[in-house]
């Protein structure tokens, strides 16, 4: 199975790159540290947000984690733009690997980066005093959810990258994409607190489902909605893979 071996190779590529240069992992951990270490405790002290009995910092930890890993995946599209400017994309296109396996492989490679990023942030959360749900399988499940959802977000960013094509334009768009997803989700506050229009958006916002699933797995242990969340994430992934593969031609030409 050439498609599969190409997938594995892309993941290995990301792990090897991370092994040589870990600086980005640490610098990207600064922002989550501020959310969990500063924003969380201060907002939590007001006790204005109904979290269902969970300490506020614990409530936002999954959201902050997902925001951070989504950022990693969204900016992964940038790598593809960069590879378009260099010859790597051209070279990959001339290997026997299929185009769909290239798109899915590159997208899921973002998942590798995202999971490693999550593993850097978790100890910070522990230090700050966030109480995780004490079940290793649940924790592994959460990493699986992060891996899976990152692929979809990376494919989304590839799609956007296929329209932009230059690095400079992408920097701004990356931010403009991540923050609306973050703020219009259940990451920092329950969806019920939002204005009606935003609530509708939060319902179709994939990040809401990812945060919900991860919150269930690492904080509350209440997995009653996990099935729906996973279905929503899978649907998002498949849709993004399909659309990104279809628009891949635009990146090439």
């Amino acid at each position: 199975m050439l498609g599969l071996s190409a997938l594995w190779a892309m993941w290995e590529l990301e792990l090897r790159r991370l092994r040589h240069d870990r600086l980005e992992l640490y610098t990207r951990a600064v922002q989550p540290l501020l959310w969990i270490g500063v924003f969380g405790p201060i907002m939590g002290a007001i006790r204005a947000i109904p979290t269902g009995g969970i300490p506020y910092t614990s409530f936002i930890t999954p959201g902050v984690l997902i925001q951070s890993t989504t950022f990693v995946s969204i900016f992964y599209g940038l790598t593809i733009v960069w590879e378009r400017e260099s010859g790597i994309l051209k070279k990959l296109l001339v290997t026997p690997a299929s185009r769909a396996s290239l798109v899915v492989g590159r997208a899921m490679a973002a998942g590798v980066r995202a999971v490693v990023q999550a593993l850097v942030i978790v100890p910070i959360a522990l230090l700050v005093g966030v109480r995780f749900y004490p079940h290793p399988l649940y924790f592994l499940g959460a990493l699986g959810v992060i891996f899976l959802s990152s692929g979809g977000f990376a494919a989304l960013s590839m799609l956007v990258a296929s329209f932009l094509k230059t690095r400079e334009r992408f920097m701004g768009i990356g931010q403009a994409l991540t923050f609306p997803l973050f703020f219009a989700s259940n990451a920092l506050y329950p969806v019920a607190m939002m204005p009606k229009a935003l609530q509708v958006f939060a319902q179709v916002n994939p990040m809401s489902y990812v945060v919900d699933a991860v919150r269930a797995l690492i904080i509350t242990g209440d997995t009653s909605r996990l099935g729906t969340d996973l279905l929503a994430i899978l649907a998002f992934d498949l849709l993004m893979f399909a659309v990104a593969s279809a628009s891949f031609r635009r990146i090439i030409e």
Binding site: L13, R16, R17, H20, D21, E85, S86, G87, I88, K90, K91
Partner: peptide, 10 residues
């Protein structure tokens, strides 16, 4: 290809 086609961080 004409442009560089290897990963410089490997």
């Amino acid at each position: 290809p004409q442009e560089m086609s290897v990963w410089t961080d490997l």
